[in-house]
């Protein structure tokens, strides 16, 4: 899932300083699962913002809504009539959702309420870790199901580098060395000899480096566009 974290409260309050009535918009997708921007977080942040502004003697009306997903245009139809009446929308969705809100309501100010962190997994309650960098050309077949692009601090393809010790990365004792994990897993699978092969220079054009990406599947597109 996409993992996000609420922005610092002062930053959010700064965004909203000139507004009297906003919509605080949650998303039922990834940010609900990672406890950053679902219905409950909307409720909590809504209270916090209202209290912070009440304390300043400048009340803020917070319309609290959470929709199925903010990354699909269809779900905005249900709130369109309410959006008319607010000064701005504070979106708690990931960067994708925030941009979709802005696109769906071109005349409305849209503020980001979260920092989108990474694509990751929930390891424990309150603990998430990065797993994928959406590089566009998966190499997990060669690396025992452990991604060196996202999980090696240097994204190298022929690790571990000389900074790997006791299974940890030179960057931090809290960070597992991805290549040590790959080595251990391939050893367990009886495939460690495959690490003798030099993985070739990566074609980064499939990643962000090739420019903004777009996927079109001719087999799925409809004439009407909808």
């Amino acid at each position: 899932m996409i993992v996000a974290e609420r922005k610092p409260i002062d930053e959010i309050l700064g965004f909203l300083s000139k507004h009297q009535k906003i919509m605080l918009l949650g998303c039922g997708g990834c940010v609900t699962v990672c406890l950053a921007g679902g219905e409950k977080e909307v409720g909590i942040l809504g209270s916090e913002l209202a209290m912070a502004r009440a304390k300043e003697g400048r009340p803020l009306e917070v319309v609290q809504r959470t929709i199925e997903r903010q990354c699909d245009f269809e779900y905005f139809e249900g709130i369109r009539h309410e959006v008319k009446d607010v000064d701005a929308i504070l979106s708690l969705a990931c960067g994708i959702g925030i941009q979709t809100v802005a696109e769906a309501f071109p005349d409305k100010v849209v503020w980001p309420g979260v920092n989108t962190k990474f694509l990751g997994v929930n390891q424990n309650v309150g603990v998430w870790a990065e797993r994928c960098q959406a590089c566009g050309q998966c190499v997990l077949d060669k690396t025992g199901g452990i991604c060196p692009v996202a999980r090696c601090s240097k994204s190298i393809f022929n690790g571990p580098c000389g900074g790997s010790q006791h299974g940890k990365c030179e960057v931090s004792a809290d960070t597992d060395c991805a290549w040590a994990l790959i080595h251990d897993r391939l050893t367990r699978l009886g495939q460690v000899d495959s690490m003798r092969e030099i993985l070739p220079v990566k074609d980064w054009s499939h990643s962000r480096d090739g420019g903004p990406r777009k996927l079109v599947r001719e087999d799925l597109t409809l004439e009407s566009g909808k």
């Binding site: 022929n158 571990p160 580098c161 000389g162 900074g163 790997s164 010790q165 006791h166 299974g167 060395c177 040590a180 080595h183 251990d184 690490m195 003798r196 030099i198």
Partner: peptide
């Protein structure tokens, strides 16, 4: 190139030099 016999995993350090 560099080689680090003191990094881990030890068995892989020779493979890395070979690569």
């Amino acid at each position: 190139c560099a080689a680090n016999p003191f990094a881990d995993p030890f068995e892989f350090r020779v493979t890395r030099l070979e690569k």
